[in-house]
């Protein structure tokens, strides 16, 4: 598989990363090199293997249904780049 400029552009847009047009080819090459190297995994026979996802624990603990958080609008908003009253503010979204 190889990444052309159009694919890099699509992936960058999916990831909401602005990539200047003139950097697309170089970035494509870099990503291709990494993907090419990664593809050695195809040598491994993984038939019948269950994917591993991390922790060794088998079952997830559950919390009790108790309200013990929230009620801290200032703490939640204090780092906001822009706020209006008790809201975060972003450029108007037109649906």
């Amino acid at each position: 598989m190889s990444l052309d400029a159009a694919t890099v552009r699509r992936i960058a847009s999916l990831a909401r990363l602005r990539v200047p047009e003139d950097q697309l080819p170089r970035l494509g090459q870099e990503l291709n090199a990494i993907l090419g190297w990664i593809e050695q995994l195809n040598e491994v026979n993984t038939g019948g293997v269950e994917p591993l996802t991390g922790s060794a624990a088998l079952a997830m603990r559950m919390r009790e249904d108790v309200v013990n958080d929230g009620a801290q609008p200032e703490a939640v908003l204090s780092n906001a780049p822009e706020r209006i009253d008790a809201f975060y503010a972003v450029p108007k979204v037109v649906e």
Partner: peptide, 27 residues
């Protein structure tokens, strides 16, 4: 219907003041 959110301890009640039922997890 639950007191707290699916993955945090913030409340779920309807009609609260904006951003008053928000944990750092929710944000």
């Amino acid at each position: 219907i639950s007191n707290a959110k699916l993955f945090s301890g913030a409340a779920t009640a309807f009609g609260a003041e904006p951003n008053t039922q928000v944990s750092f997890v929710d944000a």
